[in-house]
Each structure stands twice: as structure tokens, then as C-alpha cells.
């Protein structure tokens, strides 16, 4: 349902990122965690950002909403949400967006919630600040929200402290805080990592349901290709700070272009594959981002790499098979080829 309505207003991009780079100063030298990333997200759509540890997926998602501390960090390029510039903007300006237009769900709800405050008060806080609600109204609305995210006996639970709730419950509270002020854009960073599989299914179902109701736009950051497969409209695969492949979810899984994405898929054990299926692993490790390799960052681990790959980094280009399928590879798989420039 959402997909149909959003397709009709195809030009309505809520998130526009252009040539965004985020570099940290480290004792060993400067580390480019996000390297020249451009992307757009249409209103109501969800983008999955997938990658392994250190691929830059979390830094990218936080850069987009301005959530990185400015110390030791430089950023170039631009990111806008609903036309509001995020990069290089004062903290005071960003505060107006956070909560009301943009919200975030973090991986670890235990550390993201304040341990010494009742969860009801923590939900009410953003209502009082952003929506200027009275104390009484905010309290009632907080209980309402707890009910909405499926917490049983919400009146009683609103008086609980985070340590009195299970991991799944705490994540539901985080979601209640995130949606409290009716944001349009939600960033969920590994929202179900660390949760049990049955609880993960419950939380993902809840997020999908809330998104449908409010036509929320979402970035879902995860290391798990299984989570993005059924929960997102588009997927971007990150490696060494760059987007190396991006496509509508079904298209990506059906016709992988980039050897790294294929490697990730092939090394994931599958519940629907017979027992003792040999996994094909990717040898080696991701490059050191302080001293990145000259050519394609994946070339040192790629079994298909040729001379060109070690010399020249491939740009993210559209495929001739599907203009929405982007890849950064000199020798793409499955019959993909770069569209000629200017086409």
C-alpha cells in the first residue's frame, strides 16, 4: 500500500545525501569512515544499510542526522532532511529536528535509556520539550504510546525503571520514545541485534506496522542480510566506507552485481539449506581505512580482481539491466554492465 502511494510521488525525496564524507582524526592518522556517499530516500520508503563491522554503516546513518560529536571529525558534502541541511549546522538547529522530525532507535536499549528514570517519564520528556505538552497530558500520552508498542499493562510499566524490563520490552520503550512526537524519518541502528529470534520478529513486525500507519521513512542499519531481505524497499551495501552496491531489495537479491555482496550472501548460513552445506567464505580482512588501498577497496580479497581493480577505484554506476541497480565494480556479475555516461 505504501509503495503504491510513494511511487506516485516519485520526486518526493525526504533524505538527500550528496558526496558526503566523514573523516576522523585518530592517533594513527586521518580515517575516512564514510567516503563520498550519495543517496536519496523517497518519502515512506525504507532503505537498509548493510555491512560488516567497520564498514561505515553506523557512521553514515549518524552523519545523515547530525548525531556525531564534532570533535576530531571533519565532514564534507551535504545531507538534507526535508530540505534542512544537516552537515555543518549548529547543534541548536539540529535539536529542533531531533525528536520532532527525525528519530533514532539504537542497538542497546539498556545504555540508550537513562537507568535512573522511570520509562514513562523518559517518554514524556520529549513530548514536553518538543510538543510543549502539560505534565499531565504527556503522562497520559506516554501510557498510550506504551500500549501502542505492545507493552502489557502500560500504566504499571510506565512507572518501571529500565532494568526492570526485559531486552525486548526496553526496545519497545525505545521505539515509543522514537515515535512519540510523530517524526517523519526514523533511523534504526541494529534495532534487533542482541535480541532473541522470536523477540526480533516481534520488534521488526512492530516497526513495520508503525511505519505503515504513519508513512514513516526509515533507514535500517544492520549486519544481517536476512533482516533487510523482507523489511526494506531498497538496500545499500557498504564496504570500507563506500556504498558498493545499491538496488531495490528484490532486484539486489535476485541479481547481485558486486562480488563483495555475493561473498556476503554465500558466507551466510541459511536455515533453508541442507545441513553441512559448505560455506564459501571471503578470505582476508577489510582494509585499514587509515591507509586504504589505491584501487577498489575490495580488490585485495576479491577472487575476480584484475590489474585495473588494483589501480583504479570503480565509481558507483547504474546498471544497463536496471537503472535503479547501482554498483561499484569494474567486472560486475550476472550480466550487469555500466550504463554509458550521459545515458
Amino acid at each position: 500500500m505504501t509503495t503504491v502511494t510513494t511511487r506516485q510521488v516519485a520526486s518526493d525525496n525526504i533524505v538527500v545525501v550528496e558526496n558526503l564524507s566523514t573523516t576522523f582524526a585518530t592517533p594513527r592518522g586521518s580515517l575516512t569512515a564514510v567516503n563520498n556517499v550519495s543517496l536519496t530516500i523517497q518519502r515512506g520508503m525504507s532503505l537498509g544499510i548493510v555491512g560488516e563491522s567497520g564498514s561505515g554503516k553506523t557512521v553514515l546513518s549518524r552523519s545523515i542526522i547530525g548525531l556525531l560529536p564534532p570533535s576530531n571529525m571533519t565532514q564534507t558534502g551535504s545531507a538534507t532532511i526535508n530540505g534542512n541541511q544537516i552537515i555543518g549546522v549548529a547543534h541548536k538547529e539540529l535539536l529542533k529536528l531531533w525528536g520532532s522530525e527525525v528519530a533514532m532507535i539504537f542497538q542497546d536499549p539498556m545504555t540508550a535509556l537513562t537507568p535512573t528514570r522511570r520509562v514513562g517519564d523518559q517518554i514524556a520528556e520529549s513530548l514536553r520539550i518538543n510538543l510543549k505538552m502539560s505534565k499531565k497530558d504527556a503522562k497520559a500520552k506516554a501510557i498510550d504510546l506504551l500500549r501502542q508498542v505492545g507493552i502489557p499493562s502500560p500504566e504499571r510499566r510506565s512507572r518501571a525503571y529500565p532494568n526492570q524490563l526485559s531486552g525486548g520490552m526496553r526496545q519497545r520503550v525505545m521505539i515509543a520514545i522514537a515515535i512519540a512526537c510523530g517524526p517523519e524519518f526514523l533511523v534504526a541502528d541494529e534495532p534487533t541485534t542482541g535480541l532473541d529470534v522470536t523477540v526480533q520478529a516481534q520488534v521488526l513486525d512492530l516497526i513495520s506496522e508503525l511505519r505503515r500507519e504513519a508513512n514513516l521513512t526509515m533507514i535500517l542499519v544492520t549486519h544481517d542480510l536476512g533482516v533487510v531481505a523482507t523489511r526494506t524497499d531498497n538496500v545499500a551495501v557498504m564496504y570500507a566506507g563506500r556504498i558498493v552496491e545499491q538496488a531495490p531489495t528484490k532486484e539486489l537479491f535476485a541479481r547481485v552485481a558486486m562480488p563483495y555482496t555475493k561473498g556476503l550472501l554465500d558466507s551466510t548460513p541459511r536455515i533453508d539449506a541442507p545441513s553441512h552445506t559448505r560455506l564459501s567464505s571471503i578470505e582476508g580482512r577489510p582494509p585499514d581505512l587509515v591507509n586504504p588501498p589505491a584501487g577498489c577497496p575490495f580488490a585485495p580479497r576479491c577472487t575476480l580482481a584484475q590489474d585495473l581493480c588494483h589501480k583504479e577505484a570503480p565509481a558507483l554506476v547504474a546498471s544497463t539491466l536496471d537503472p535503479d541497480h547501482l554498483f561499484a565494480c569494474h567486472y560486475p556479475l550476472n550480466g550487469h554492465a555500466a550504463q554509458p555516461q550521459g545515458a
Binding site: G226, A229, T249, A254, I271, D272
Partner: peptide, 14 residues
Amino acid sequence: EALLSAAVVPDPDV
């Protein structure tokens, strides 16, 4: 059965 049905598969068609 419930555990298995909650598991995710990296394939949108499954």
C-alpha cells in the same frame, strides 16, 4: 516451529 518461523532468510522470495 515458532523459532524456525521467526528466523530470517537472506532472500526476499522465501
